[in-house]
């Protein structure tokens, strides 16, 4: 890897996501404990940590797939509350890619992509299809446009999922362990697409165990453990000189296996 993230600074300093003292419980279990995190426009954040540490819960709170019970989350100037209008407004600005792809199996690839632009953005069908083909080319599978998701490989499905999220032309992209369900030989094709997206200046929050990807792409590393943010640092410091013992332990486990 020749690209160094330290060379690229976020373009602006404007905060686009701000989590302040966010807490969440599942029943008695506290999943998030006083989470404070500010993400600037164009910033690329990689979140890592052991399983069950609250990484997914945190990013799922950002588009309200999970509801936080205390604290405030402000996304692109809109605070997340029970207000359905706000939630839908935020969701249409925030794209999400899931571990299990979650493509709509009854719709062809192209219809998966045009659905939200047509029904949320009210885009005419023709225009939505042109847009969809554009993004399918970007993820390098335009030839699969008229197949059903079940006919594609895992890596192709995940690239379709990325294209589907991009079709809404979101300001922020959330990735929830996008390569964890993939066979090893397909991980690279998905990561390549994500690296390209990162280079285009997209604000990205990525939960992943792919540390090579993190070193290449991240502006900021966030390490979580037991519902807390333990360490926030640029990757150069995070990987070379982590402060917390918990981070050190995690890194030694994940990097030496």
């Amino acid at each position: 890897m020749t690209r160094q993230s330290a060379a690229r600074k976020p373009e602006t300093t404007e905060a686009v996501i701000r989590l302040s003292d966010v807490n969440k419980w599942y029943g008695e279990f506290q999943a998030l404990k006083d989470i404070n995190l500010t993400i600037k426009r164009g910033e690329r954040v990689v979140v890592c940590g052991p399983s069950g540490s609250g990484k997914s819960t945190m990013i799922r709170c950002i588009n309200r797939l999970e509801e936080h019970q205390r604290g405030t989350i402000v996304v692109d100037g809109i605070e997340l509350t029970d207000n359905l209008k706000n939630i839908e407004a935020i969701r249409s600005e925030v794209g999400m890619v899931f571990q299990s792809f979650n493509l709509f199996p009854h719709l062809r690839v192209i219809d998966n992509l045009t659905l939200a632009p047509m029904w949320v953005r009210k885009m005419p069908k023709k225009e939505a299809e042109t847009l969809a083909m554009e993004y399918l080319e970007r993820v390098r599978i335009p030839e699969q446009a008229y197949k059903f998701p079940g006919q594609l490989s895992g890596g192709q499905q995940q690239r379709v999922a990325i294209a589907r999220a991009l079709c809404m032309q979101p300001k922020i992209m959330l990735f929830d362990e996008p390569t964890s369900a993939l066979d090893p030989e397909m991980i690279k094709e998905v990561l390549d697409v994500m690296i390209e997206l990162a280079e285009s200046g997209m604000t990205m929050i990525v939960v992943t165990h792919e540390m090579g990807f993190a070193k290449t792409v991240a502006d900021t590393m966030v390490f979580m453990d037991a519902g807390e943010i333990v360490e926030v640092a640029p990757p150069s410091i995070f990987f070379e000189a982590p402060k917390s013992d918990r981070t050190k332990l995690f890194l030694s486990q994940i990097l030496t296996h």
């Binding site: 588009n63 797939l65 839908e88 709509f104 659905l115 029904w119 949320v120 589907r164 999220a165």
Partner: peptide, 18 residues
Amino acid sequence: IPRGQYEAAEALGLGYWR
């Protein structure tokens, strides 16, 4: 219907009826 289908639809900003 798996929960992921609802989540994917919600994440795209689709409302309940749609």
